[in-house]
Write a protein that binds this DNA or RNA. Sequence first.
DNA 1: TTCTTTAAGATTGTCGACAATTTGTGGTTA
DNA 2: TAACCACAAATTGTCGACAATCTTAAAGAA
Lengths: 228, 228
Amino acid sequence: MTQDAFSKTLITTASDQVFVDMRREIVEGSIEQGSKISEPELAKRYGVSRATLREALNRLESCYLIERKANVGCRVVALTAERLIEVYQVRSALEGLACRLAADNMAADEVQSLKQLLNQHLQTQRVKEGESYYQEAGDLDFHYRIIKASKNEHLIHLLSNGLYQLIRMYRVQMGMVGPRVSKAFDEHLAIINAIENHDGELAELLMKRHISASQSNIQAKFDRYQSM
Amino acid sequence: MTQDAFSKTLITTASDQVFVDMRREIVEGSIEQGSKISEPELAKRYGVSRATLREALNRLESCYLIERKANVGCRVVALTAERLIEVYQVRSALEGLACRLAADNMAADEVQSLKQLLNQHLQTQRVKEGESYYQEAGDLDFHYRIIKASKNEHLIHLLSNGLYQLIRMYRVQMGMVGPRVSKAFDEHLAIINAIENHDGELAELLMKRHISASQSNIQAKFDRYQSM
DNA sequence: TTCTTTAAGATTGTCGACAATTTGTGGTTA
DNA sequence: TAACCACAAATTGTCGACAATCTTAAAGAA
């Protein structure tokens, strides 16, 4: 899988490595959602001490991938329909804000670069039809750039380090890969235009609508998944 | 100081205690903003091992009160004008959402209870004029109830455990105590009315405006503080 | 049988010590 | 003088072991 912009984490220490590895395994489902986590077992598996593992667990907790209870232990987050709605409500508000700020702040060359990304994205799409990871990474990169362009460090952190891994987890495990391609492209284009015109209000509205559509899409998959 | 609803944390372990204690000291300024944190020193001061202290530091990091760099250490967050703006932009978006959801979800008796809180709040205000903590706690409780009424657990967690301690830190250390009392009361009342009428759109707008006013207020204090 | 109690097992919380890395200081060289 | 390097001190990262707590399963009472 090609790595998306959200997943790039500077790895310095052993616990960084464990954190990144576990994050990937949880998001991709290798470590099953809702399952209990045994500290001794995982420490052995990653070849580190429990202290190091616990450091990683702490960080996984702050990005909402695991939940802890004192004297009881950790559990991987469970993907429920309710949580999906909650997360997307929050995402909509935050990314709407990011998009409005981006419309205010983004320089002309940044907008051009974003347009270029979108075109490139479309090309890849046509050539590699069916290979979903490119699209997934592409979509994420688009959102990432806009979030970055908000220039609001707190907001950037909240979305990149906090929310997006959980969103990815839903998308990956629901098998969100193909269908919404061309439609999402048009929506992205409309958002860029609003940003280019520095129309923050419109940009925010379009982004919220875009995310709302994404939510409906994933929710439909979720319902199908549930009824199997 | 009377404790506000946001600060109530269930204390089970030693690191819970250290976490709550340090949080209070950082918010109130006993541990100076921007100062470096020495793990051995603080561990000794709280009478716990470094492992326990580090557990607490991890949690302080996830509520944005300290910042860590690998192999370098922790530093208490620095209260800057830029960060204040960033935090309030995020707060406005999230609490606006919370308020809209509350307007959709809140039951009649919950609304009554909220009205009652506001009245009680006003009484206390008149009696204890000058004693600022009541007001501070009262205002926070008002916001807390609305956030809770959103019924969105993710949003609740994001605001209560994530953002509000940092907001409190600004308010406490800037000495936000007295002046905006009666005006804030009217704004609170208008918000309740919108919620009672289940007018989510209006409730969101009013809450955002209320927070925006709060921001201007605190920012003015900040500028005065800076120029001293 | 069903509910409560109790004890054994397993898991998490905490500790002190060691290893790895960074920081500060002093000396050397251009 | 200024820049660079080397070394020492201090700090953070990591480890294995012990203490406190929870879970489970067996034994006993209603």
